[in-house]
Design a protein around this nucleic acid. Structure first.
Lengths: 133, 133
DNA sequence: CTGTATCCGACGTGATACTG
DNA sequence: CAGTATCACGTCGGATACAG
């Protein structure tokens, strides 16, 4: 997210530019669009998880991506990272209140998506079919 | 969006894999994460718009990206594209019922993001500050 | 006006190897 | 176990030029 000018948030019409809080909003939206972030949030909803625990649950994510995803979530204050200096080391990730708050609208969106999947996939099919003559 | 295995949707816990509708859900979520798509949807909420009208309203989007974004939305059945074979040509884009439906949870998410921007940016600032010693 | 085609650099992502 | 570092590759996105 590094666009320069955007003019929305819930506005419209030709009148003119609005604010630039949109950039911030956009950065949050893109986190939702991020494949792994949403997944991780969902998995953390009912309690803290360890690193490899998450890795196994997701199946298909690389170590690298999981690390980056968790860092991003931590940076945004959505999850906490607590290290137990035992050996072997143990790190727990847990949703913050903020994270749990975000989970709600995200779930709503997910449910909408799930409910309308047939329509969307149908539309895609028709669109694609029409294009290849 | 071409991951292979994901195990969520609203689930959790170690139990086991779920379905693979998640891939579909993920594809919808990534559309929301897409910077431009959400913007365009918001702009179309109160009526149809022409191509260049959208282009001007967004300011910063390239012609290419606007075209691609609109194609994507059209493909998913979220917007309709109607061509008036006048000269010069005129093309209107309008939200479908499905598109308007999607706009709702998206707005909810946008409002949450807007409301919690301060917290998030604060968290980011603290996180970044801590890292550079 | 509304696109499509091409070039090209920037970034995201997975695979792999190595460290505390 | 929980990361970091490096590399190689593919895609995304902007700029530009051109077409209907």
């Amino acid at each position: 997210m590094r666009p320069e000018n955007i003019h929305v948030t819930a506005s419209a019409a030709p009148p003119g530019p609005q604010h630039e809080d949109c950039r911030g909003v956009a950065s949050v939206l893109s986190r939702v669009g991020d494949k792994w972030s949403v997944l991780v949030i969902m998995l953390l909803i009912d309690g803290p998880r360890r690193f490899n625990e998450l890795k196994r649950m997701i199946n298909g994510i690389s170590q690298r991506m999981l690390t980056l995803t968790l860092r991003g979530l931590e940076r945004d204050g959505l999850v906490t990272r607590t290290v137990y200096p035992t050996i072997p080391p143990r790190v727990d990730y847990e949703l913050t209140d903020l994270g749990r708050g975000l989970a709600e609208p995200v779930k709503a969106l997910g449910q909408w998506a799930f409910a309308h999947l047939p329509e969307i996939e149908g539309a895609r099919g028709r669109f694609d079919a029409r294009k290849e003559e």
